[in-house]
Amino acid sequence: MAYNDNPFAEEANVNPFANGSSARGSTVDIPLDSAKDLKKKEKELQAKEADLKRREQDVRRREEALAGAGVVIEHRNWPPFLPIIHHDIANEIPIHLQKMQYVAFTTLLGLAGCMVWNVMATTCVWIKGGDVGAWFFSLVYFLGIPSAYFLWYRPLYRAMRTDSLLNFGWFFFCYAILFFIGAGLFALESVISIWVIQQVFSYFRGSGKAAEMKKEAARSTINAAM
């Protein structure tokens, strides 16, 4: 009786490198052009990095020179969500002057609020069919916000910070003179408006329109009740 070969018999060792080749000693050829490109890009990056460092050093030297000359570098930091001006009362204004500066800043914000409200109101009137001229002039008045900042608030801020006589003088000229001239004109306009109202009301009462209006109101009330 014939038996099959032993399945557990050791098989002949098979040498995977019997063909004479060895993976350990194999090499990968890298094109010379690619290596040159990599070195070129590396040099370009190093040159850009060196240029950035040089510029940073130049800016730092300029800032140090300005600081040594007494020039304050103003970085934009207000409002926090969209910095457009430099404003730091707590750290730059002397403590005994901070309250005064805060009040002045409040008046600037109040002016800005009034101008914004004026634009919104005239816009609503224009949408409802009003005169476009009023809306246009509200935009012109809106320019008073940056004008007020540059003409009197910033000079006052710098005067409080550095005790500068020139900035104090500019503040008094733009705020005390121009502001009170504008306030005087508005006061004159208010007086004239009050006079017009009084004259119209006097005519209204003297012509019997007031009594007629009362009768008309009473008649309307009776009709509504019936």
Rank of each mutant, 00 (worst) to 15 (best):
F150P: 05
P155V: 05
T162D: 10
L151T: 12
G133T: 08
A159C: 11
A159L: 03
L156M: 04
I127S: 02
F137P: 00
S147K: 14
T162G: 01
K128M: 13
Y153W: 14
G130E: 06
A148H: 08
L143S: 10
F142R: 03
W152N: 02
L151P: 02
D131A: 05
L151F: 15
L156G: 00
R158H: 14
V125P: 00
A148R: 00
R154P: 01
Y153L: 07
T123S: 09
V125N: 13
P146M: 04
S138F: 00
T162V: 07
T162A: 11
V132C: 08
R154S: 01
T122P: 03
V140P: 06
C124Q: 11
F137Y: 15
V125S: 10
S147P: 07
P155F: 04
L139I: 12
L139E: 04
M160N: 15
W135M: 12
R154N: 11
Y149L: 11
D131H: 07
D163E: 10
V132D: 00
W126G: 06
T123A: 05
I127N: 02
K128R: 13
Y149W: 15
A148E: 03
Y153E: 01
S147M: 15
A148F: 11
W135V: 02
W135E: 00
S147G: 15
V125T: 11
T162K: 14
C124S: 14
